[in-house]
Amino acid sequence: MTKEIKLLLRSTLAVLVAVVGCLALTTPQAVAINGPSAGVKLNAGANADTRAVAAADPQAAQAAAVECGTGYELRYAERLPTAENRLGTLFSYTKMTGSRWDACAIFDNNTGATKYMKLKICPNTVGGACAQDEGNFSQYAGPVHLTNAMCGDITAIMKNTSSSSTSLINAIRGATACN
């Protein structure tokens, strides 16, 4: 090979590496670090609707799992406020740590515009502290982690602005399985 061809190949490779590197740093709405082929581990308690959301958008489910961290399994996913009018997607992941359930949540913004979002997980214990993330987000709120989240709740709120009196989304869901 000539020097010019080698230089051209190296330049092309450098550009490809840079592009792949940028993709690896993207958010749940984009391609996950491990890519969509890595798959999302589903919690045994994941219902049919959760499985359908994960199957319809495996890249977002995987990217949210990467944001939550190692060992988390998708327990719950829902398009909000409805499947037909999806402005956001709530992803809830759990993992067993010793004898306790830990939870992680991501609230994906599917509007394509910056919205005020609040994501909160609260335990079902007296005096237990909630974990939350809120602000103006164009991509997602979270991840929010809570240890010992058994029977806790996740709240997902989306408004046009923090001072808006009307919510686009106002949902409360269970963080973990509960008897």
Rank of each mutant, 00 (worst) to 15 (best):
C104Y: 05
D102W: 15
R75T: 12
N85E: 13
A77D: 10
T94G: 11
A83Q: 13
A103T: 14
T89C: 07
T94N: 15
S99W: 06
T97A: 11
G98I: 10
P81Y: 05
Y76H: 11
W101S: 12
D102M: 09
E78Y: 08
T82Q: 04
N85A: 12
S92Y: 03
N85M: 07
S92G: 14
D102S: 11
K95V: 09
M96A: 10
I106T: 09
L74G: 02
R86P: 01
W101A: 12
F107D: 00
D102Q: 15
W101F: 14
A77R: 08
S92I: 15
S99D: 10
A105K: 06
S92M: 08
P81L: 03
G98H: 10
G88P: 00
E84S: 09
I106R: 04
T89N: 02
L87C: 05
P81H: 02
R86M: 14
Y76V: 00
A83G: 11
S99R: 13
Y93I: 05
L87G: 04
C104F: 08
I106K: 01
A105M: 10
C104W: 02
T89R: 05
L74Y: 05
G98A: 07
M96F: 06
R75C: 07
R79P: 02
L74D: 00
F91N: 01
Y93F: 11
G88H: 00
S99N: 12
A103S: 09
R86F: 04
G88I: 00
A103Q: 06
I106P: 00
T89G: 04
K95N: 09
A105H: 06
G98R: 04
F91Q: 00
E84R: 11
E78D: 10
C104T: 07
F107M: 06
G98M: 05
A83C: 01
A103G: 08
T82I: 13
R79Y: 07
C104H: 08
K95P: 03
A83Y: 06
R75V: 04
T97G: 02
S99E: 14
G88C: 01
W101D: 13
L80Y: 02
T82E: 04
Y93K: 04
A103M: 04
D102C: 08
T82S: 11
L74H: 03
E78F: 10
P81M: 02
A77W: 08
R86D: 06
G98D: 06
